[in-house]
Nucleic acid binder design. Structure first.
Lengths: 208, 208
DNA sequence: TCATTTGTTCGGATTCAATTCGGATATGCC
DNA sequence: GGCATATCCGAATTGAATCCGAACAAATGA
């Protein structure tokens, strides 16, 4: 047996509810007290369980954050994945706008619970745990290109994808987190759309 | 007297050396043990002082990280600031490349000491402590536009600046931190240059 | 139904890092 | 040299994370 398997997998409904309550309590505590202020006591108290119970399903506090992370990532994937077929048929700028507005809505749900989390764990979590989102968006990008044959002439797709995806995610989180933003979100969205749009147009017009 | 002024300001040379050693030890410990693994004992040990000494000049561990942050930010500003007059005369793509390569060199100095810090910085810096760098680059942008009068026709400069600066910084850090990058740094640089270049060209050509 | 086994919860006991504090040592100044 | 002040030290304190064994609840099967 693996050494770190003192943890249990919740089987009974009651246990599943406990796990859910703990993860949710994590988000709530994070919103209320920030990262440093989030103690196991707080989480347990908010979840309405005892501290000991946390360790029944999570090896340590870190794993609770991991579970929160997976939850957020899951929500994002769930939001985009099923809409890919529809998204690949859109024009570039509306597509960018659609993704960004939906992303914002998700992050601001429940009083910015997810945003609060993101702004801490942000991206540079030691392991790159945003990987699923990256893969998802890279996948969307590839499918988009396949649906717009002219775009196959674009060079250096992986690099451009990397830039647009990472740059986009960070910029939005950074903006939403800013307590006194100097630019409006709408302008940001338009700017990012133009960025991508002009790039494509510029790159395609290069040799014609 | 301010309430939080149990701290001393180092006056004697010995004390200044101690403070320097502590901050440097912070970077070293961070590289060796990661954030979680960096304890006050480690820092004190690496710095060759006692734990008690840390608290002579820093209110808590957090402040040591703050000092590290200021150090990195200071290095970046120091690197760019004096070269602004020269930078504003460059073409866009070489300018972007120049900035990014210098930024990379800085981050990779001393076995990636600063990079290691930066990759955690999001977590540490709930308040926007990259602000000086943002201001610096925004300033560079404004001066750049003033030296290239056609560019004054660009709309929405603040938003575009926000995107390019934040997107650029994050993308580079993200790339340098990636243990198995799928794109080469050179491609990334070229991509970011094109992104900015095409945007400007596209925006200027819009109505002409 | 009840006995037994297995899953779940509890909260005090333990461990370990952050921070404090009073005393020891070094430095600068006269 | 001797005084005042700056600096440093490290054991003691505090509080959070984690562990653990006992209590409780649910499922099983006769």
């Amino acid at each position: 047996m693996p050494p770190s398997s003192r943890q249990r997998r919740p089987t009974q409904p009651r246990a599943k509810a406990t796990v859910r309550a703990i993860v949710e309590a994590g988000f709530i505590s994070l919103s209320r007290h920030g990262v440093e202020g989030t103690t196991t006591r707080h989480i347990a108290e908010i979840a309405g369980v005892s501290v000991g119970s946390l360790y029944e399903y999570f090896a340590n506090k870190e794993e609770i954050f991991d579970a929160m992370h997976q939850h957020v990532v899951g929500e994002v994937v769930e939001m985009v994945q099923p809409r890919i077929p529809e998204l690949v048929r859109m024009e570039i700028r509306p597509l960018v706008a659609e993704l960004l507005y939906r992303f914002r809505d998700l992050l601001e749900r429940d009083d910015g619970r997810y945003l609060r989390y993101m702004s801490y764990a942000a991206y540079f979590a030691p392991r790159n745990q945003l990987e699923p989102i990256n893969r998802l968006l890279m996948n969307l990008l590839v499918q988009y290109v396949m649906h717009h044959p002219d775009l196959t002439r674009l060079g250096n797709l992986p690099a451009m994808g990397f830039i647009m995806i990472n740059g986009g995610i960070f910029t939005v989180i950074r903006h939403l987190t800013d307590p006194h933003p100097t630019v409006a979100f709408d302008d940001l969205v338009r700017g990012l759309g133009d960025m991508v749009g002009y790039f494509v147009e510029g790159e395609l017009g290069k040799r014609s």
